[in-house]
Design a protein around this nucleic acid. Sequence first.
DNA 1: GTCTATATGGCGATAGAC
DNA 2: GTCTATCGCCATATAGAC
Lengths: 202, 202
Amino acid sequence: MSKGSIKTKQKILDSATELFLKKGVDRVGVREIAAKAGINLSLMNYYFQTKEKLFETIFDMLVKDKAEHLRDILESNLPIEEKISDYIDSYIDILIDKPILVSFVMSVIHRNPEKLKTMGSVLALYNSEKFCNHINIEAQAGRVRSVNPEQLYVSIISLILFPFAIKELIADRNKFTPKEYDDFVITRKTHITDMVLSYLKV
Amino acid sequence: MSKGSIKTKQKILDSATELFLKKGVDRVGVREIAAKAGINLSLMNYYFQTKEKLFETIFDMLVKDKAEHLRDILESNLPIEEKISDYIDSYIDILIDKPILVSFVMSVIHRNPEKLKTMGSVLALYNSEKFCNHINIEAQAGRVRSVNPEQLYVSIISLILFPFAIKELIADRNKFTPKEYDDFVITRKTHITDMVLSYLKV
DNA sequence: GTCTATATGGCGATAGAC
DNA sequence: GTCTATCGCCATATAGAC
């Protein structure tokens, strides 16, 4: 039954992924994707119906295992300092590999806010519950400063994610080469960790 | 010569501003703007040529005086702690008033990165030079911890801006009503200030 | 499964009459 | 200045041949 089907489907996914990552979702047309995949536009419609569904499929693939890894860290039994440090390091490593994931997430948020509830991958990227519980426990035990844990969680992901959302602006204003920008972001790992942990210190 | 011209131009600007702020640039069509302004689509083009130029005009108007106010704070002679606190408070007040400014900036960044150099208003929103100088002076005098000032500046604007960029996600995951979201953001003023100042403390 | 061909409808932009 | 009419591009959808 499905002869070239699997390969064709994969070819479409590969081409679209490459284009989405390189140019951003809004700047890629369906015709361009079909051309790159070497197939007809109608065939793309046969497999994915709409560009939006194709995007969601790709987005889920790109994000799923990354999100699980991040969730595992937050749900682990590591001491709070180590947990925060690992989380920051891993998150930044993921984004250095695929910087455009941030703008993917934000395009989903702004394109279709109602869709949020059905897109598990996006929700996995904002996953504060276990973290907040842990912070509360530590605070009650007097091992960290007593803080609003949700605020802290939002602050941590802001410190990690936002520089990738305004990458071009930062690079432009500091006259960074691509390598210098990467160095800047890598340096952020310790910067962010230092900032958060010094804030939590009792 | 310019009979109804000024009024017409203003009517277009008013209509477009309202729609852009309410729905976001990408979700507003030129026909919708023209209809709301009660004029013909071509007339809009006569005054503003393209939707992009119309947007840039409005963006500059919305941002200019706000950006100047923020710059004034950074260039003031306030003690560093007060300067940071004022900056955070003012920036968040601006964004509570017009939350969509953040997504405006980011749409400019992603739509046309090359345009960045010519859009003075955007550049004014990332304006680290004076701040970095001040931090360096304080650090050398031993009044604050010795830090990478550019990293710190990026961190401060990340803490301020990012929650507005993912407003819908935060509201959804915490089941915030609009008022609860505003409260959350107002609470951030002291949260962010505490975090930054505790980090800087020697 | 894969193709050609075509239709619909939205969009930004423009030509040209008045 | 202001309009009508239209162009060209796009995403989406469908019919129908192979």
